[in-house]
Design a protein around this nucleic acid. Structure first.
Length: 829
RNA sequence: GCCGGAGUGGCGAAAUGGCAGACGCACAGGACUUAAAAUCCUGGGUCCGUAACAGGACGUGCGGGUUCGAGUCCCGCCUCCGGCACCA
């Protein structure tokens, strides 16, 4: 995942994923594959804008400076990126296409019959109000609804950006307020986003997080007529089988029918309760709201299965934004309803018999229906089917599916983001109607501003630029901007064809790199390997999949999913095992580490710490360890005398580093000598282990294999040049600077990075004799040495003959002997 | 509460159901040095045992199970980390 270039520079987490992919890129190239390994900048975003507000410095300037810092650090780490594909989401040549994709969303609708997005022109519209109808179906639409507003940040936020009633960025309180906003219809893709998870190689936990976020829930929508007549109240329930146990109803306080149904005597109480709820922040509502509150509306609904009248309450434990914003309360089999019923003394009926030994009151699982007339005796799944059929027949209900996923709030009141390619045209009645700009008007650049603060009226900062906003024909530009996620939704596609100024990316390169083109190198549709932090599980990774699905439907990309294989690198903690942070004082600065130990040691250490996916604490002692290893590699190759001279020259003044380094000679122990069988075995064991570990992303054990080679090679009096050169080829992806330096001293022409990966020969690994463990009743008692070709019978005989084993078999008959070829013998007595 | 993941030496960790602790850190002893650093060599799970060897018992969060054999598989718990959480 490409980084947001913050002013603080890289933190140690960045090089973790980047080193892993760089090693694999180098490895895959050495295997002869064409590798796309690019870097870019997710550079729109809040910090640059907030800095601009404080300092008056244009975010463009800050962003450029930050990118320069990131570039310097990333280049110092020796990543083999293809810089000709570098992208910057704030570059008009890039965000032109972000705006273009927005227009595709705007000009499309989701056809539920085909399950796909289609151009808006294909939408069958009623003759009257055609435009309004079209607008109501677009994938990008305007909504006047309560949204999360963050006073501190001066902007609205998406659902995904609000955590426990606070902004994800900064942890500021957010409140709900109705505003006109752009939304993206991601909910139309709920099923597709769920189904798509089945065909991609992501960790189960990450898939689960996405599934939970989408929150699919199957149930029934049921109508409850009002006792007094008028509109029916619709509820969503996953347990229609408990309908006979519904003893009251609850509407969310914000429900539209509350005003309609509340009776005169209750009006004051209801109004007071609604005011109280509205005043509560969402934080209070979720954190403190375990204690149930609510008031009676005075109205009754009819439970049509038994024609009983049940009271209608309002309570804030029912959310306006989920399902229909109303529930049938079944205190017998729902914890929350039970709590509420107990508090307000409402009736409770058991309608599901729990299995023997469990209390039926408050029982939530599947059981047998009771006190439910025609459902009695049915197990829960059948009762659900029967009651739903019954409701459908009477026109009182139907099967339905609900999702927790909400549409994506896509506009922000910020300066430093992509402007919407939208203008508002005046209508004769004085209102304004949105209209898309043509593709030819892209990119739409933001106006120049010197004051980036939100305006006093709460309008976005872009509203300040009157000459930009107000068009000669009386139309006004949209002044919201897109969220930071927009640019990162599709950047992986741009990498395939980063300099294309006619298309967001060409069909050919897209097909080639995404793996569906006949000439493509991969059988895994999508990005072959995507490495990044888990924090994007429900943000970037969900948004991106959504956009990609839409682009796929519209025929612009060739794969249904963007990222085939995804690996989440584990967080690197501070030396104290706590999360790294400036305030804790346990943060590690990559520049310091590179300055002291060099880029290779830094790369190597981050890979040696442990498995890529694991959370692991930093240890500067550990860096010293791999640094020492690199020192041993160096001394393995170079002549000690010339090395000493080098060090002396270094301490003298006015000596050019490169010239001085060239004076170091290769060690005399490296010679064009034939390798011994033992040397070849050491080399090929290393090739095998490193190769297999790289295939499995096991960088830490691959490095330990390199160490094992060096520990052995350091004892060789004569080091065959061919063996040593092969070792450098294995080292090169991990520590490219050192490996290339030594490679060039060895000569032989090519840069190591362009040479093929060594192959291992199993024959060279064959042992002449094998050590075999001898167990008695599963306990190790001896080790014997047998020729590699020994038969199981030979080995068994040798094991039984062992002196050390004899005492443990004394006087006990041998029941069974298990011989595991080449490993062990277990004698059961 | 629900869903994921993880618990192995002093520490980071390694181990297709087959010799637990590879590799590294830290530590200890030794060599080199006037000395230190660097470097090189050696050692090490715990306990019992021995003058020293030898030898033995125990040991992968806890309790069971399957198996000739379990860190690994199964069942039940505990702890930690991450996510979700009044979602009907």
């Amino acid at each position: 995942m490409f980084p947001y270039p913050s002013g603080a520079g890289l933190h140690v987490g960045h090089p973790e994923g980047y080193t892993a992919t760089d090693i694999l890129a180098r490895y895959q190239r050495a295997l002869g594959r064409n590798v796309l390994h690019p870097m870019g900048w997710d550079a729109f975003g809040l910090p640059a804008e907030q800095y601009a507000i404080r300092s008056g410095q244009h975010p463009r300037k800050t962003t450029e400076a930050n990118i320069a810092v990131f570039q310097r650090q990333i280049k110092a780490l020796g990543f083999s990126y293809d810089w000709s594909r570098e992208i910057d989401t704030t570059d008009p040549r890039y965000f032109k296409w972000t705006q273009w994709i927005f227009l595709k969303l705007y000009n499309s609708w989701f056809n539920s019959a085909t399950g796909k997005a289609e151009p808006i022109e294909t939408l069958p519209c009623p003759a009257q109000e055609a435009e309004a109808y079209r607008d109501s179906k677009r994938l990008a639409y305007v909504s006047q609804a309560p949204v999360w507003w963050c006073e501190e940040l001066g902007t609205v936020l998406a659902n995904e950006e609000v955590i426990d009633g606070k902004s994800e960025v900064g942890g500021f309180p957010v409140t709900r307020r109705p505003m006109r906003q752009w939304m993206l219809r991601i909910t139309a893709y709920a099923e597709r986003l769920l189904a798509g998870l089945e065909r991609i190689d992501w960790s189960e936990s990450l898939k689960e997080m996405q599934r939970n976020w989408i929150g699919r829930s199957e149930g029934a929508e049921v109508q409850f007529p009002l006792a007094a007549g008028g509109p029916a109240i619709s509820v969503f329930t996953t347990r229609p089988d408990t309908l006979f146990g519904a003893t009251y109803m609850v509407l969310a306080p914000e429900h539209a029918l509350v005003d309609v149904i509340t009776t005169a005597p209750q009006r004051a109480a209801v109004a007071a309760y609604r005011a109280e709820v509205a005043r509560k922040s969402d934080l209070e509502r979720t954190e403190l709201a375990r204690d149930k509150t609510g008031v009676f509306t005075g109205a009754y609904a009819v439970n049509t299965v038994n024609n009983k009248q049940i009271p209608i309450w309002i309570a804030d434990y029912v959310l306006a934004s989920y399902g229909t914003g109303a529930i049938m309360a079944v205190p017998g089999h729902d914890t929350r309803d039970l709590e509420f019923a107990r508090k307000f003394d409402l009736p409770m009926v058991v309608v599901v018999q729990a299995p023997a030994g469990q209390d039926s009151v408050g029982f939530l699982g599947d059981g047998i229906s009771v006190h439910s007339e025609f459902l009695n005796g049915l197990p829960t799944p059948e009762a659900k089917k029967k009651i739903t059929a019954w409701l459908e027949e009477k026109g009182l209900g139907r099967n339905t599916v609900n999702y927790k996923l909400r549409d994506w709030l896509f506009s922000r009141q910020r300066y430093w983001g992509e402007p919407f390619p939208i203008v508002w045209k005046p209508s004769p009645d004085g209102s304004f109607h949105h209209q898309a700009l043509p593709d030819s008007a892209l990119p739409l650049l933001p106006p120049e501003l010197s004051d980036f603060k939100p305006t006093a009226t709460g309008e976005p900062p872009l509203a300040r630029a009157k000459s930009w906003v107000e068009l000669p024909d009386g139309a006004k530009r949209e002044t919201n901007t897109m969220p930071q996620w927009a640019g990162s939704c599709w950047y992986y596609l741009r990498f395939t064809d980063a300099r294309n100024d006619r298309q967001f990316c060409g069909t050919e390169p897209e097909g080639y790199w995404m793996g569906t083109h006949p000439a493509g190198h991969s059988a895994r549709p999508g990005v072959d390997l995507y490495v990044g932090g888990i924090e994007h599980a429900v943000l970037h990774l969900l948004y991106s999949r959504f956009w990609h699905n839409v682009l796929f439907d519209l025929g612009y990309v060739s794969t249904p999913e963007p990222f085939f294989k995804l690996v989440n690198q584990g967080l690197i903690l501070g030396e104290d095992g706590q999360k790294m942070s400036k305030s804790r004082g346990n943060a590690v600065n990559p520049d310091d580490i590179m300055g002291e130990f060099g880029a290779d040691a830094f790369r190597l250490y981050e890979m040696f710490m442990g498995p890529l996916e694991m959370v692991k604490p930093w240890s500067t002692k550990g860096v010293e360890g791999v640094y020492r290893f690199l020192g041993r590699v160096w001394r393995l190759f170079v002549d000690e005398g010339s090395e000493t001279e080098f060090e002396q020259r270094q301490t003298a003044q006015g000596v050019d580093n490169a010239d001085s380094l060239a004076g170091i000679k290769l060690s005399g122990s490296i010679a064009d000598a034939p390798a011994t069988a033992a040397q070849l075995k050491t080399l090929h064991a290393c090739i095998k282990k490193v190769t297999e570990d790289l295939d499995g992303f096991r960088f830490n054990t691959a490095i330990s294999a390199l160490m094992i080679f060096v520990n052995d090679a350091i004892t060789w009096e004569t080091k065959p040049a061919a063996v040593m050169r092969n070792f450098l080829l294995l080292l090169q992806p991990f520590a490219p600077h050192l490996a290339e330096e030594l490679g060039s001293k060895m000569g032989g022409g090519l840069t190591l990075a362009y040479e093929p990966w060594p192959k291992f020969d199993l024959d060279l690994l064959a042992e002449e004799t094998i050590e075999i463990a001898v167990q008695v009743n599963g306990k190790l008692r001896d080790k014997i040495v047998a020729p590699a070709g020994a038969t199981p019978a030979d080995i068994e005989a040798a094991a039984l003959a062992s002196e050390k084993v004899r005492p443990f078999m004394e006087g006990k008959p041998v029941k069974k002997v298990i011989v595991v070829p080449k490993r062990l013998v277990n004698i059961v007595v």
